[in-house]
């Protein structure tokens, strides 16, 4: 589905001195970063660090106050909305449905950037929709109305809709939020597979152990600034984690998963809670 790694091997996304404010509140400060295809990036950081805002800027849902984003050497501003929709997809956090479309109908809406005004799907589009349905194990639910789904099911439908868009860049805002353990592992595995096939996948998550298992690269944000970015082997260190999350951190290699295991504890207990 996603395009192969670009011949030049250069970054697909270049963030140049990116800043963003919401009224008087500064949300992102002078962020510069290059993101490459074939990698799965996880954006992590405490609440209010600006993670979701960064995703919004990458999806052009908000415009940066200063600085610029380039997608494949072209400013994001220069893309038409359809060009952008066939290059970048976003799975938003909220997955509330108001109308009783079926699961399949919602996923078919993901093909919108490639269709005409009346939204008719061609056989190729239907094949992609079927693939996504089977990848996310939604076959049993395909003809059910989305208004009757559980939280986890609805979230998988949002993801399926996003994957049906079949874009080279895929952005996900806390995609495993209401999934159970097995579903979350499956989903993160799917995302890493997409990256391995050449996509540029960017996930915002609070689950650092998930990040340790499935990410290639970690981007740490705190108070709107970039603290560190790089391969997880160099960024998932006790010192960096303690700095970003303001808690004592321990990182050890985990035989069970074959990856890293992270644990945290607060150094000082707040006095009100000691009694």
């Amino acid at each position: 589905m996603p395009e192969q790694r670009s011949a030049a091997g250069g970054p697909w996304l270049r963030l140049k001195h990116l800043s963003f404010s919401h009224g008087p509140r500064v949300i992102l400060k002078d962020l510069s970063l290059d993101l490459f295809p074939g990698r799965h990036y996880v954006i992590a950081g405490p609440n209010g660090a600006g993670k979701s805002t960064l995703l919004d800027l990458l999806a052009r849902l908000r415009r940066p106050l200063r600085g610029q984003i380039e997608l494949k050497d072209k400013p994001l501003e220069a893309y038409t909305s359809l060009e952008l929709a066939s290059a970048v997809s976003l799975a938003p956090q909220s997955s509330k449905f108001d109308f009783a479309f079926t699961v399949r109908e919602v996923i078919r809406l993901g093909r919108r950037p490639y269709l005409g005004r009346w939204g008719r799907l061609k056989p190729d589009d239907e094949i992609i929709v079927d693939q996504v349905i089977s990848t996310l194990h939604l076959g049993r639910l395909a003809e059910k109305p989305v208004t009757n789904l559980s939280g986890g099911e609805a979230q998988r439908v949002v993801l399926a809709r996003t994957l049906a868009q079949a874009t080279p860049v895929i952005l996900l805002d806390e995609p495993t939020n209401s999934l159970d353990v097995a579903q979350a592992l499956d989903l993160m595995g799917t995302l890493s597979d997409l990256a391995a096939q050449g996509a540029l996948v960017i996930t915002v998550t609070h689950d650092l152990n998930q990040a340790a298992t499935f990410a290639d690269e970690i981007i740490f944000l705190k108070d709107g600034s970039l603290v560190a970015a790089g391969p997880k082997e160099t960024t998932l260190t006790a010192d960096l984690l303690s700095l970003v999350f303001e808690a004592q951190a321990q990182v050890r290699s985990d035989e069970f998963t074959g990856g890293l295991a992270l644990s945290f504890r607060r150094s000082r207990m707040p006095s009100s809670e000691t009694h």
Binding site: A59, L61, A85, S89, L90, F97, V106, R117, Q165
Partner: peptide, 21 residues
């Protein structure tokens, strides 16, 4: 002529915008 876009807009602002609406 806006019916298809309206379908997509029922998915919410972020989804609709990133689908090119």
């Amino acid at each position: 002529t806006s019916a298809t876009d309206l379908n997509i807009m029922t998915l919410g602002f972020k989804s609709a915008e990133t689908l090119g609406v």
